[in-house]
Every structure is written in C-alpha cells, then in structure tokens.
Design a protein around this nucleic acid. Structure first.
Lengths: 340, 340
DNA sequence: TTGTAAGCGTTATCAG
DNA sequence: CTGATAACGCTTACAA
C-alpha cells in the first residue's frame, strides 16, 4: 500500500529489467516478448500503476487538457455549456480545467495565465462583462494555444466561435411581442461591450423598425440582473405611455420583471407581455410560464469543444476562423399568450 | 511572436548565461546579482515567459491542482459548491479540475483514474447515485491522495467530510408540515444507498414518531426527479386518506409536486402543503413560493476545499477524519403558509 | 556570483 | 528482444 504512485521504475526494479523495456511492454510494442509483456502488465496491475500525466505532458508538450474560461458557473446556460464541453472532451480522452472569472477582468487575466502555465492545449472562452482589453487572450494565441469563443465572443480577436444567432433570436422575440399586440416595448439590455448585448439590442430595434414602430432610446435600459430590475422597475412602469411589453436580455431578468409587474398589480400577459432569452428550467416554473429564446447551452458547449479539438488534433489545419451559429428558436409560452 | 511558450533555456541562451542562473534570478535568489536579475526579468517579460507547470509538477511531485468529482454540474447546488471550491482554491494558488460523473458509476471510476494520472494533490468528491463500490476511491487514498467528501458522502471510507445536517433538516421540514396541520405526509425520497437519502428519510420518520403520527411505509416513495414525480403523482394523490403534505428530498422534486398538484385541482398549501430541500433560486420563482431547507452550497464547497488544502499543505497532520456539519435552516415560504 | 550536473517519469533513438 | 542514454523544463546541491 504505497503512499505514492508507482512508476515504471518500480516495475523495472521489481522485475529486474530496464525501464525502457517496461515502457515498451506497457504500450504493447511488437519488439517485446509476450512473456515480458505479461509479467510487466501483471506487476503494473498489482502496483496500480498509472502513467504520470505530468511526465507525459512534459515529454510530449501535450497536456491532454483543455481549459475553459467562463463568467459564472451558477447559471443554467453556462453549466449546460460545461456539460457539453466535458462530454466532448471525455469522448476525445481530454481533461477539462474550468476557471470562473466571476465577471471580473482581472480574474480573467489571471486564469488565462494559469491555463497557459498548465500548458493546456486549447481554451474555450466566454468573456466577462467587464473585459474591454484582451491582451491576455492574444497572449495565449501568441503562445500557440488555440482559442474558441462561445456565446460571449470577442470581436477584436480572430478566432473560432460558436454562438446562437443573437440578432435573430432577439428579432423573433420582439416580433412576437408585436404580433400579440404590444406597441410600446421596453428592452432590458446587457452591456454594449458584450457583442451579444449589442446584437440582441439591434435585433430588438430592427424588429420595431420593420413593423413601423418607433425606436425610443428611452425604452432601452442597461438592466441584466434581478437586482437591476428591482431597482428600476418602478421608474419604468411609471413612464407614459406605459410599457405593454418587455424583451429582456436573459431569463433571470425576464422573470424578475414578471414578478415585479405582478406585484405592481398588472396582469401578465394581458397588461404586459414578457419575453426572455435562454430557456432555462425557470422558464416553465414561473407563472405565467415564460416565452423565451432557446439557447442550446449543451450543444454550444459540445460544438465549441469539437471545434477546439479539431484544431488541437490538427484534423483541421485551415487557419481561417470557423464560426458556428445555431438557429434560435422561440419557445412560446403563457407570458405572451393573449388574443390580439 | 513565438508559437511555443518560452523556457528558461531561451532566456539563458539570449543572455549567454546558464539556466540555473536564470532559474535563481527568476525566484529572486539572494546569490544573484541585481544586475543579472534585472536582465533576466526583463527578457522574461519580453518573451512572456511563464513557468511550465508540468515541469514544476514533475520535479516537485506537486501539480498545484485539486480535483472535483461531482454528479451533475447543472444543478444549482452543485454549481454553487464548485464556486466555493474555486474561490478557496484560487486564494490558495491552486487550480481546479472538475469532472462530472453524470450519476454513472463507470464514469466515476474513469475520472478518478484520470485525476490520479494528473497527480492532483487532493480530490473533493460527491458520489454518484449509482455508486455502490468504492475501490476507485480507496485506490486514490492508497496513492496518497487525500479525499474530502461533500454532500453525498461515502460511509465506507474514512475521510474528511463536509455536509449539511440532513437528518435535522428533514426533521425540521417534516415537523413544520405537522405544525401547519398536515397529518398524512408523503416523503419523496432519494435512493437509500445515498446517505443523504437515508438520513433525510430517517429525519422524516422520526419527526412523525415524535409527534405521534404513524409512519406508513407506503407514504415513502423513491422519487427524486421531476420525471418520477410526473410518473407517480396520480397514483399518490389517489390514495386514501389523501396526502395533505409532501416532504420532497430536493427542490426540483418539490416544485414538480406543486405544479402537478395544482394541475390536479388541489390548492397549495391549503389542501396540500409542500416542503423541499436545497433552497435554490427556483424556490422563490414557483408560485406558491417554496418552503425549503437551506443547503449552503457555496459554503460547503468553500469549507470542503479548505479541509482539503489544509491536508495538502500539511498544516493539519492529524490523520483523524474531520467532519464539518452545517446547521440547516428552514426557510418558510408560501407553500406551507396556512393557518392551522 | 555563476555554472555543472543530477533527477522528477516517460519515451525515443541508438546500440547491442 | 532488451538496455543505455538523452531529452522534455525546471530546481538544487555541489563546484568553481
């Protein structure tokens, strides 16, 4: 019962043979006699021998690990993404190192370096809300580490990316509000430095324009968390004309709106209809259930990891950045279910 | 713009000095002249030098990484735990390797080995529902890797553990149901091989006994997911006497019950009161809001990581297993809010 | 103050 | 068929 893992040396010593023979036997090299192989494998099993991934990585410059940089794991979307990433990595025999930034630029730079230190073979990134500089990411690329962005992509860096069509999803959500009769639709937006925030806002604006509704900048609020909703809702509902629809940039925000709107004495969807973005499990728990855009976290994660693994294993050598855009789907539920 | 990370060799060559000098200069060794140090640090910066963690790990047998084995990341509780773990690890300068088992024993054994291969310095574990054998975990211990269990602990292995007091939480939840007038309380339980399932069941039973209510084994169902609730609820509600209270082993199940019970035409809490376990964000989104036991995922993760790091850094040499039991708190909400 | 060399665990090259 | 040996990047006696 060793308190430290066995090495090929241990096996070699025990058998009175050389480490190179052990090494070869272990990987079924044709040169080695069946007899030796059997003996080696047996003692290996007996000692619970497991190859040291650090030594392998050092030797081959391949750590067999990919990194993930993610804002916050405690969101359904992001944890779904991680699930997808893990499954893809697992299938390919890769390990995953997950790092949260907690939406902090400073922490994002730190984990990027930590991942570099560990010589991960590639990194999947969704940038923090507060990230405006990206040297830490180009640093990775300069060190030969391929990057794949997902969801929160960085437009300043040329790299693979996997996203849902945010523009289109927002357009659909807004158009649907118009279709059920909303004429004064508020958009609760994410920061503009996030491309997804920008794109969803544009989708919202375009849908209004295409339906000959005015785009009122005062109807657009930077408001992407429950706290901000609680902070601003009274002011928003006090406006004239009163809003009759909300397109929120994510489900959390949409749900906070529903709760606050109900609390304020309005009916959802009859007085005010609401759409969100993401389709997390909460969407069917809130009452009324939430109309929202499906975001396919698992698939995004899986595909992003596939992109990365393709680059790593060089099965794709084309240096041009690839982009996968998932077709969004609007899931219609009660929060917009009213007769026109 | 190198496509491969710089090494101390590169620095040494560039400066015409030896690698050992570089190594020492980089770590501010007193023997090295200020002049050399400056030169070394400058070129290190210029080359974006970062120490190779694999080489360091190999040399020192310290990977600076801890592992996490977790059933499914897409649950609020588990992702909160990971957040706590990451923060603690981050503070201590450690990296985290997260592995999901998707509740599968086979995958649990695989990731345990992968973590061993990577020579993580310790592992935090919450076992899968289907795990009945634990050789893969004792294997880790035999290799000198300290284990800390959290939430889903394994009673067959002597090791540190961090949990919430499941027995007490269940007792409180059940007693509260009794207090608001329930007399025929159903328990939706987790598998008994999970200690948490067992303990919560016992807490439920004991609360009934202490209040002179009969413990009817037919009132206990193995039912810990939404799907199972949907599958069984009709049969359960058809029993006579009709259940007037549910204590569900987790929030997801509790919420499914509320939704199904309402769908069946009963009022919650007036006809049927419901309590859950976990206090995830869904608890305040469902209507009526859910009375549930707070589970403190973040704190559990943080403390578990602290336990592990204490062992790793040998600041604790006491071999005896330590156990931290969080005091549960019952969060009373609408789903049990009725006058007696 | 700096350099040389050994070693962490493994594999590959080159000799037997 | 098997065994030395060097090398991966780094640290650390031991020399100089």
């Amino acid at each position: 019962m060793p308190s430290t893992p066995a090495t090929i040396k241990d096996i070699a010593r025990l058998l009175g043979i050389s480490v190179s023979t052990v090494s070869r036997a272990l990987k079924d090299h044709p040169d080695i006699s069946v007899d030796t192989k059997e003996k080696v494998n047996e003692t290996a099993r007996k000692l619970n021998y497991r190859p040291n991934a650090l030594a392998l990585g050092l030797k081959s410059s391949k750590s067999n690990t990919i990194g993930v940089i993610i804002p916050e794991i405690v969101h359904f979307f992001f944890s779904s993404v991680i699930s997808g990433i893990e499954d893809a990595a697992y299938e390919a025999g890769y390990n995953v190192m997950v790092c949260q930034t907690n939406e902090m630029y400073e922490r994002e730079t730190m984990v990027a370096k930590a991942l570099l230190d560990h010589r991960v073979e590639g990194i999947l990134v969704s940038i923090a809300k507060t990230s405006m500089k990206f040297d830490h990411l180009t640093l990775l690329q300069d060190n030969g580490i391929p990057l794949v962005f997902f969801d929160r992509i960085c437009s300043f860096i040329e790299s693979d990316a996997v996203v849902v069509d945010d523009y289109k999803g927002a357009y659909m959500a807004t158009e649907h509000l118009i279709a059920v009769g909303c004429r004064n639709i508020v958009h609760l937006a994410a920061p503009e430095n996030l491309l997804i925030g920008e794109l969803r806002k544009i989708g919202y604006c375009r849908a209004l324009e295409d339906h000959n509704l005015p785009v009122d900048p005062y109807n657009i609020y930077l408001c992407d968390t429950r706290e901000r909703v609680e902070d601003k809702i009274t002011r928003i509902l006090a406006r004239t004309p009163k809003p009759d629809g909300f397109f929120a940039v994510n489900d959390t925000t949409a749900i906070a709106v529903i709760q606050e709107v109900k609390k304020a004495g309005f009916r959802v969807p009859d007085d005010i209809a609401v759409t969100g973005f993401g389709d997390g499990p909460v969407a069917t728990i809130i009452s009324p259930t939430l109309t929202t855009v499906e975001q396919n976290g698992y698939e995004i994660g899986y595909e992003a990891a596939r992109f990365l693994l393709d680059r790593i294993t060089k099965s794709i050598t084309n240096p041009a950045a690839r982009k996968k855009v998932f077709e969004p789907q609007l899931i219609k539920r009660e929060s917009t279910d009213r007769k026109v």
